[in-house]
Simulated scan of single mutants.
Amino acid sequence: MNFELSDEQQQLADSVRKYLATHYGFEQRQAIVGSASGHSDATWHALAEMGLTAIALPEADGGFGGGALDLMPVMEALGEALVVEPLLDSIVAGRLVAQAGTAAQRAALLPGLADGTAALTLAYLEPGRRYAQAPEATTTRSAGDGWVLDGAKSVVVGAASAARLIVSARTDAGASLFIVDPRAAGVSLNPSRTVDGLRVADVAFAGVQLGKDALLGDAGAAQPHIDEALDFACALQCADAIGAMRHAHEATLEYTKARKQFGTAIASFQVLQHRMVEMLITFEQARSMAILAAARVDGATDAAQRRRAVSAAKVKIADAARLISQESVQLHGGMGMTEELKVSHTFRRLTMAGLRFGDADHHLERFAQAD
């Protein structure tokens, strides 16, 4: 497998890194996280202008027809900078609309996503059901010409800033997807913030009236689309974690070169050299697995092959994230957990990376079941 980026991928990644270095430094990020909205409209529009919101959309819908491998270097750059704008979740929701939506639905939602004027997000997790991907507690029933939606979704990233929610719900025919306005009557949001600074919300639906055109695709036919979209999301989450791991390793290496004890840089101590080498080897192994997951999401011949690759990568990423984040904090000493140091926030990002879209235990079980 070729692990090298194409010229176009490298140029895009360099452009993203250049923008983030100038406009999304650590102090700027902290101000964004602490703001009322928890995200930056200027950053969102800049990312859209670079084409990031359109990469994974089909060319017929105003996108570039790219896949996970095209987005991987972008996600690494976002992970390095600890970007909190919900790009990943909007891309995944847009992918579902592109795959399952009618021409009218795609025309209504995807141009706004592509140009950055209308973010989307996927609401699929349910209270008390951990990482279950099939809807159960959220239900819809037909009513006249439309639908009535009831239930709840948990930890919906970017719900407050999204123009539309893509909501999974159970119908008589099975798992289905619906387009829901988060400001519609009967929809209530309980916002909060994750440990790594993302703005999320628990969303409740109480007798929400939906038109017949709110159904995305066919009733009961959504589960394969949901499964594929979440594997795509998980592969990109792995890439985001790779970027955060890279920063943790590089920052720790620089610190050990500068920090002195007994008049000598601690980087010269053999025991610390061994730990730094272990971090580097773990990082390279995790990056290889992330590339494999992205490749399988783009080109797997069957769903089982895709699931196995994604779950194997997520297990490795979760283990690597724990080791590298803990080592980076320990080698920085007490200052490693201070609010003023980016490494402490990288630790939080990597902690969440091990949990989003399924933790290691969940994916070990799924890997064993995929055949």
Rank of each mutant, 00 (worst) to 15 (best):
N2W: 02
Q9A: 11
L12F: 02
V16D: 01
L20H: 06
H23V: 08
G25M: 07
Q28H: 11
I32V: 15
H39T: 15
A46C: 07
A48Q: 06
G51L: 03
L52A: 09
A56L: 14
A56S: 12
D70W: 07
L71T: 10
M75C: 10
A77P: 12
L78V: 14
E85L: 09
P86G: 05
L88K: 08
D89F: 11
D89R: 13
S90P: 05
I91F: 04
I91R: 10
L96N: 12
Q99W: 11
G101S: 11
T117C: 02
A118G: 13
A118R: 15
L122N: 03
R130V: 15
A134E: 10
E136C: 09
A137W: 00
R141C: 05
S142Q: 15
V148Q: 11
V157T: 15
A169I: 06
A175I: 13
F178W: 04
T194R: 02
T194K: 03
L198A: 02
G207C: 03
A219Y: 04
L230C: 02
E250Q: 15
G263H: 04
T264Q: 14
A267K: 03
Q273T: 11
E278G: 08
L280F: 00
I281A: 11
F283S: 03
T301V: 14
A304C: 01
V315D: 07
M337K: 13
A353T: 09
F357V: 08
G358C: 05
A360V: 10
H362K: 02
H362R: 06
